[in-house]
């Protein structure tokens, strides 16, 4: 029982980061029908910014807003340079464009920085734990869960209660008609990319605090977690993306702690097996999005 509770808390901590990443993916998928395989590049870029600033001796308190800002700006720049040119294209084109962006960004670091791992120091409290009864809880997980909760509430308010959120939802439902109503496509899409960047920035801070290093291909893992979680939750559903993130985090933690040691390093493989099974038995993901397809 205690072990399960322990897993639950660990899983929530891990899942929080995935949920933020997945939500960022889902927001963009909603307005542009683009599944952003370049989402992880926001973390790659942030990682190098963290490396440069922290190795200059800057504190994490200062670097945190810089990282979030970097993610937002990078997200907007990528939209401007690449995605704005393929708006309304087929899924195939959109997917490959984002895949291309992923490669160009990581290749730039490969070309101009280096292929080797760059490490930076992590804040001291990341590894601290405290105990409640027999539970050992990381300070880090507590912070992550708390910040994620606040972020999710804020995002929910933004989307449900503001005119921007209304425009975002209208554009996600029917882009052309939203434009006919005066919704500016640039505003909505850039807003979505900024929001996605903000969410990735927050997730990125935690990701980098835990990793303490970066490489040109660092974006692959967070990208994959984000898109997989969004898919598990049900593509197109914001709630589903968040749920998918937590489910993925929990599944990973549970598997890792339950699998025998000899195969524990293959957790990713087993997680994939579970996901494949999920899609065979529930192909629409956890939350079904009503298809507005007129027949």
């Amino acid at each position: 029982m205690t072990e399960l509770l322990q897993n639950l808390i660990d899983g929530l901590g891990r899942g929080s980061i995935y949920a933020l990443l997945a939500l960022g993916v889902a927001v963009i998928f909603g307005v542009m029908h683009l599944l952003n395989f370049a989402h992880g590049e926001l973390i790659t870029v942030s990682g190098y910014v963290a490396f440069w600033t922290i190795s200059e001796g800057w504190s994490w308190y200062l670097v945190t807003p810089i990282i979030i800002g970097t993610a937002i700006v990078t997200s907007l720049v990528i939209e401007r340079v690449a995605f704005s040119r393929v708006r309304g294209s087929s899924d195939f084109t959109l997917l490959l464009t984002s895949f291309g962006v992923h490669f160009v960004v990581s290749a730039i670091f490969l070309l101009y920085v280096s292929a080797s791992v760059k490490t930076f120091s992590r804040p001291g409290w990341v590894t601290n734990t405290y105990s409640i009864g027999s539970l050992h809880i990381e300070v880090f997980d507590t912070v992550v869960i708390g910040v994620t909760l606040v972020t999710l509430l804020g995002t929910s308010w933004l989307i449900q209660r503001t005119m921007f959120g209304l425009a975002l939802r209208a554009a996600a439902a029917d882009f052309d008609t939203a434009r006919l109503m005066g919704v500016r496509s640039d505003t909505v899409i850039r807003g979505a990319f900024a929001l996605s960047g903000l969410l990735a920035g927050i997730a990125g801070v935690f990701w980098l605090m835990r990793a303490g290093n970066t490489v040109p291909s660092a974006g692959i893992a967070p990208m994959l977690k984000g898109v997989l979680a969004a898919l598990i939750g049900g593509l197109g559903s914001l709630r589903g993306a968040v749920l998918g993130g937590f489910v993925l985090g929990l599944a990973e933690v549970l598997l890792r702690s339950r699998l025998p040691d000899s195969v524990a390093s293959l957790t990713e493989g087993f997680v994939f097996l579970l996901i494949a099974l999920l899609f065979i038995f529930r192909p629409q993901g956890l939350i079904r999005v009503a298809h507005a397809e007129r027949v």
């Binding site: 005119m163 209304l166 425009a167 939802r169 209208a170 439902a173 029917d174 008609t177 939203a178 109503m181 005066g182 919704v183 009503a290 507005a292």
Partner: peptide, 15 residues
Amino acid sequence: FGDLTVEENLKIGGI
């Protein structure tokens, strides 16, 4: 916009 309420539809019109 079928998923939005009637009032939200109107608000979008007046954006």
